[in-house]
């Protein structure tokens, strides 16, 4: 089992770095999909099948599709930039360093005595057994009950995004004639 985990982790890191280096956006998007998929696999191993399925469907599926369709509208090549990567690198190193520093007092991976597994006592699993009268999937039970309100919020987020996308993408002939003019002007200039 262990070597599978190692393989997945190594692949994850590799994929992430590849995405960072790629200039072909199309390929980058595909690798992002792969990244999501690998994450989903690891989540599976981490006993989180629900998240894994969702991540595979949403992260590797929907989001890749969305990005690809965007790419179709916008072009696929990233231009090289002259900016120095030093500052972002520094920020990232500091942030990452801080995070690693933060892990030092964390309960170890899989430690059954970690606070997370101890605190609400009885645990969510046990509570849900009683409260839910034996709904088998505890995650679903939690989503629908204790954290049902988050789920409502999540639905709202989707609704917001839907309305927002409509709002942003809808074109209207009444709207912004000057921009259209400008686009035309620019095209003319480009042609000339």
């Amino acid at each position: 089992m262990n070597w599978v985990v190692f393989a997945i982790l190594a692949l994850l890191a590799l994929t992430a770095v590849t995405v960072a280096r790629l200039r072909q956006l199309w390929a980058a998007v595909m690798f992002t999909g792969i990244y999501s998929f690998l994450s989903a696999s690891w989540m599976m191993i981490l006993d989180a099948p629900d998240v894994a399925f969702t991540e595979a469907a949403v992260g590797a599926g929907i989001s890749t599709v969305l990005m690809l369709s965007t790419l179709a509208l916008t072009g696929e090549q990233e231009q090289p930039t002259k900016r120095s990567p030093i500052v972002p690198l520094l920020v990232v190193l500091v942030t990452g360093g801080a995070l690693i520093y933060g892990t030092l007092d964390m309960p170890h991976y899989g430690d059954p005595n970690a606070v997370v597994h101890q605190h609400p006592d009885p645990s969510f699993v046990e509570r849900s057994l009683d409260d839910m009268h034996g709904l088998p999937n505890v995650v679903t039970a939690l989503l629908a009950s204790y954290r049902g309100y988050d789920t409502l919020g999540e639905t709202t987020v989707v609704l917001t995004a839907g309305i927002a996308v409509l709002l942003i993408l809808r074109r209207d002939e009444m709207e912004r004639p000057a921009i259209a003019n400008r686009a035309k002007r620019r095209r003319r200039k480009a042609n000339a």
């Binding site: 954290r147 309100y149 988050d150 919020g153 987020v157 917001t160 927002a164 709002l167 942003i168 912004r176």
Partner: peptide, 24 residues
């Protein structure tokens, strides 16, 4: 965590609202 969820609701809607400005 609920704060995070609501933060995202307000943020997403404000991104959309801001993008409605007249200039590009």
């Amino acid at each position: 965590f609920n704060v995070f969820v609501f933060l995202e609701i307000s943020s997403l809607s404000s991104y959309a609202l801001i993008s409605l400005g007249q200039t590009r």
